[in-house]
C-alpha cells in the first residue's frame, strides 16, 4: 500500500472515531433525560463470499462475528459504528494446469470497521424493522505458514443492511440481520480485484441502554 493511500485510510479511521466519540458523548449526555438512545448489539452469522476467488480457497461459508453500537439521533434515525471479525483456514488452489496433486495451507483474517446510518420503524407491538447503509474499511491479512509468507493491506467499500428486532423483555431484543458489503481488494499480480464482502446473514442480541 502506498504511503498516500495509507494516510487516507488513517484519515477515514480518525473521522470514524471522531464521529463515534461525538455521538457517544452526545448520547451519554442525553441518556439521563432520554433513555434508550444508545444500543449495543452482537451477532454471529453466516457469510457467503460473492466470488470464487475467495470461496475456492476458503470455502463457501464463513462465520463472522459483529459488534455494533447504534446511537439514535432523531426518533427513527440512528448512526451506527461497529467492527466485524472473520477468519478462515483454506488451501491454495492450483492455477493453470496441475502438475502434481499438492497444495499448501493458508489462512485469512479480516477485520472490518463500519460506520453508517439506519432508519428504524416499529411495525408491531414488539417488532421493529430497520434498514441502513454505511462505509466499511477492512484490514485483511493472508498467511502461508508453509512458505513463511504473509501479506496484509487495507481496503474500503460500502454496505447495506436490513434488520428485524423482536423485543423479548426489558431492554433486550433478539435480532436478525442481512447485509451486503462490497469491499474490493486487488488480487496479487493481476489486474482484477476480489470482493472481501458479500452476503452475510446473522443473528444475535441487542441491548438498549
Amino acid at each position: 500500500m502506498t504511503r498516500s493511500r495509507l494516510s487516507r485510510v488513517y484519515l477515514i479511521l480518525a473521522g470514524v472515531a471522531l464521529v463515534s466519540l461525538a455521538c457517544a458523548s452526545s448520547a451519554a449526555a442525553q441518556s439521563a433525560a432520554s433513555p434508550g438512545r444508545v444500543a449495543l448489539s452482537g451477532t454471529v452469522g453466516v457469510f457467503v463470499p460473492s466470488n470464487t476467488a475467495m470461496s475456492d480457497v476458503y470455502g463457501s461459508r464463513l462465520m463472522p462475528v459483529t459488534a455494533q453500537v447504534d446511537v439514535r439521533v432523531v426518533p427513527d434515525v440512528a448512526l451506527f459504528g461497529g467492527i466485524r471479525w472473520m477468519s478462515a483456514d483454506g488451501q491454495a488452489v492450483v492455477l493453470g494446469t496441475p502438475v502434481v496433486n499438492e497444495t499448501s495451507t493458508t489462512s485469512l483474517g479480516v477485520t472490518a470497521f463500519r460506520v453508517g446510518a439506519e432508519v428504524a420503524r416499529a411495525v408491531a407491538p414488539r417488532w421493529t424493522l430497520a434498514g441502513g447503509a454505511g462505509i466499511v474499511i477492512a484490514r485483511y491479512e493472508e498467511t502461508w505458514p508453509d512458505a513463511g509468507r504473509a501479506v496484509n493491506n487495507h481496503s474500503s467499500g460500502f454496505l447495506v443492511l436490513a434488520e428485524a428486532r423482536c423485543a423479548v423483555g426489558g431492554k433486550w431484543s433478539v435480532i436478525g440481520r442481512v447485509e451486503y458489503a462490497s469491499v474490493r481488494a486487488n488480487v496479487a499480480d493481476e489486474n482484477s480485484a476480489v470482493n472481501l464482502g458479500g452476503v452475510d446473514a446473522s443473528a444475535g442480541v441487542r441491548f438498549v441502554f
Binding site: 476467488a53 475467495m54 491454495a92 492455477l95 493453470g96 502438475v99 485469512l108 502461508w144 512458505a147 501479506v151
Partner: peptide, 17 residues
C-alpha cells in the same frame, strides 16, 4: 522442468518440478 502455480486471494507462488 515443469511449473505449477499455487494461488490464494493475495499471493502467488510457483513450484518448479
Amino acid at each position: 522442468v515443469q511449473s505449477q502455480v499455487l494461488g490464494t486471494m493475495f499471493m502467488r507462488a510457483t513450484t518448479a518440478y
